[in-house]
Design a protein around this nucleic acid. Structure first.
Lengths: 214, 214
DNA sequence: TGACATTGGTGTCGTTCGGCTACTAATTCG
DNA sequence: CGAATTAGTAGCCGAACGACACCAATGTCA
């Protein structure tokens, strides 16, 4: 299992890499390990990510397997990619591990299969944004709506309109306001919200033919 | 690799199963095999499905891996689920294989991991309907718009409105009419269409907060 | 032969949804 | 105080969507 840990870092996503074992061609690699005992794959991914983060990742999902001939640093025949998310407030990787964050658009050289796994994870994050609470897993427990919007913009790669974003969010019953406010220097203080999805029966919307996103 | 081959059969999806090896607890199982040489996983899945169908499946995708302690008929430690689609016009499985179609809602007993893979594949088919040309892969090369709509209704599990469906399809530039018509006994003959997606730059639509579909 | 059933296909109307502009609110800075 | 900055809202307008009604072309059957 190759674990792709993602977290938002200054206007983009960053991935957690560890130094390669001595003798490897590339200097950095994804953290990886095999499952132990009867561990489920997601459990094993959680274990690997937690050891480096010092905290449990907020979401763990599979992103695909690869068994082609491309080189893997551990010589593994088959790799299963596991995506782990870490929220904004979890700053530094555990000391001593040598692990470090790298922006997705400025990665060091990686083994081909690892490079592929990172790309798959980045695509999966964007694709599942509408159906998984991905954005909320990249934020602390309470957050401002502007912060939430910035996460969406970061993942979608485009600007969103404030009023439209909030209207859609309002209609989804996914967040609820707390009675806390945060003032960040200049400007009006923002109300803090928490992720609290209400089980609401949605009217089934129409079919979308969105193949162009491929 | 456990291969979940799906095809539309009388108002529902059916999955292709093979008789279990002698001594297994369940009588039926998913076809499965390990990758050969440097075969990619999808290539291996294609090979397995083709051997049973007598034709190449029209779409092959991964749907997830499992390595928990649940029983697998071949005793494999790790399984990768592979989804294969077969169109409506491909009727019977290759003779001699003993393979047979079973409706998704009336499956025989399966090994726990296989049962899980089938469920994952069914979920994946529905989830990717909007972003992959799933529906078109379940139809012959030419088809009527009513047939296409029936596939969507079958996969979504709800009725769609004819006029709205066609208007949305029109706007998507995914199909083009042929000059052939098909008359099926009663009623007005229907024009045949073919899948021919035009590369059209779509304006980015708004964010959807659709977590309730989980 | 003509009424009817059946299936294919379209026009249109009212409602909702989404993008946008413009506004108000509350704070810091000078 | 006023300007700058960030948060949050009101409302207009065009596009999209659901529903209904209607027209078209075939088979069935009296």
């Amino acid at each position: 299992m190759d674990v792709v840990t993602l977290s938002p870092r200054d206007d983009g996503l960053a991935v957690l890499l560890v130094p390669s074992v001595a003798g490897a061609r590339e200097r950095w690699s994804l953290p990886w390990d095999g499952p132990r005992d009867d561990e489920r794959l997601e459990e094993a991914g959680t274990r690997v990510a937690r050891a480096l983060l010092g905290a449990t990742p907020t979401l763990v999902e599979q992103v695909g397997a690869a068994s082609d001939g491309r080189r893997h640093p551990g010589g593994a025949e088959l790799s299963v990619g596991v995506l782990a998310l870490s929220p904004l407030d979890n700053e530094a990787p555990a000391s001593g591990s040598g692990a470090a964050w790298f922006p997705l658009d400025a990665l060091p050289a990686l083994a081909p299969r690892h490079r592929d796994m990172v790309d798959r994870a980045a695509i999966a994050v964007r694709q599942r944004l509408d159906h998984s609470p991905i954005a909320f897993r990249l934020l602390p427990a309470t957050f401002t709506l502007s912060e939430l919007q910035r996460i969406y913009e970061l993942l979608l790669g485009r600007r969103l309109h404030k009023a439209s974003f909030r209207r859609a969010l309002q209609g989804s019953f996914l967040v609820e306001p707390t009675d806390a406010w945060r003032s960040e220097g200049r400007g009006r203080p923002a109300q803090l919200f928490r992720f609290a999805p209400k089980k609401r029966r949605r009217a089934s919307r129409s079919v979308r033919f969105d193949l162009s996103s491929e």
